[in-house]
């Protein structure tokens, strides 16, 4: 699978402050790519460089294998975190204007806008001024403006902020559909559950450096620690726990269970088979739960950032 977007060795300084220090990312075509990082890490700077709002001090951005050019804005749809619309301009006029700025012809823009306005069932907003819309309504219009020119690359910075759960879900489905139709999506968010749900690839930026990137499943494999979460019916929870602790590393677990089972996280050494643990446990009581602990995006985020802080 080839990469639609490649950022190669990007450096960016603002005065004495380093915003990006040798950051490279590769976004595979047709994937959803999560750009993660704490506040102030440099995500927005990278996104702005991809959108040619800011220029890198060093490094190159490639779109579809070619260095990014000024005209490429027509292939990119960008929904910034700080977003808004002209308040006293009518919705339809405004959408047409922004579409034409992206390089669409007026006729094409009208056709596309009609399609999207019908799809979101907001056709009667065309002649409304933006100041008459609620925040959620304005966000829908902004989403349409971002995607209407059918860009190859879609960049969303915190796309779900300001949406209620129903509309957030609607937008999420639209993003997935756009991906299925061939668009590539880069999206930056602090909401880890949506990363979990949507992203196939991620990159984690912290303090101007990229500290982690790759396929989310690969990263999870890398971060898992051969730990299993178990629940087991025993006659005496305390003594069984002590017995297990003699053979394995035991950690407390917060798993909620129905009866008064013994709940533990058990770590096995590298090379040991999980079957051995299972076998051992089955001699201690009736097992009601046995599963490998796979770190979620949230845990990976926190672990990676904490590790980077110690460095």
């Amino acid at each position: 699978m080839s990469n639609l977007l490649v950022a190669e060795n990007i450096f960016k300084n603002y005065g004495d402050f380093t915003a990006l220090n040798n950051v490279s990312i590769s976004v595979p075509k047709g994937s959803i790519f999560g750009l993660l990082g704490p506040n102030g890490a440099g995500k927005t700077t990278l996104i702005r460089i991809i959108n040619q709002i800011a220029l890198p001090d060093n490094g190159t951005i490639y779109l579809d294998g070619k260095p990014l050019e000024l005209d490429d804005v027509r292939y990119i749809g960008y929904l910034p975190e700080e977003r808004g619309l002209y308040k006293s301009m009518k919705v339809g006029e405004q959408a047409l204007y922004l579409a034409q700025l992206k390089g669409m012809s007026k006729q094409d823009a009208k056709i596309q806008l009609k399609y999207w306005f019908d799809k979101f069932d907001i056709g009667d907003w065309w002649n409304k001024k933006v100041q008459e819309l609620s925040k959620g309504m304005a966000q829908k219009v902004q989403f349409i403006i971002t995607v209407m020119h059918k860009p190859k690359l879609l960049i969303f910075d915190e796309p779900f902020s300001g949406f209620d759960p129903i509309n957030a879900n609607l937008i999420k489905d639209e993003i997935l559909q756009l991906r299925d139709e061939g668009s590539t999506v880069v999206f930056s968010t602090h909401r880890m559950e949506s990363v979990e749900e949507l992203c196939e690839h991620i990159a984690l930026i912290d303090k101007s450096n990229k500290i982690l990137d790759g396929k989310l499943s690969d990263i999870k494999r890398e971060f898992k620690s051969n730990t299993y979460e178990i629940a087991i019916h025993t006659s005496d929870n305390n003594s069984v726990e002590k017995e297990i602790a003699k053979k394995f590393v035991v950690l407390p677990s917060n798993m909620k269970v129905l009866d008064n089972e013994l709940v533990l996280k058990v770590k096995i050494k590298n090379g040991e088979a999980s079957n051995d643990l299972l076998h051992y446990l089955s001699s201690k009581g009736t097992i009601s739960h046995f599963a490998e602990v796979i770190p979620n995006a949230n845990e990976i985020f926190i672990q990676a950032v904490n590790k980077n802080a110690k460095k």
Binding site: V73, Y78, P80, E82, R83, G84, L85, K87, Q142
Partner: peptide
């Protein structure tokens, strides 16, 4: 009105 970033992602 925060529209500025949307616009300058299309024009210089």
């Amino acid at each position: 009105s925060r529209i500025i970033e949307i616009i300058i992602s299309s024009v210089k």
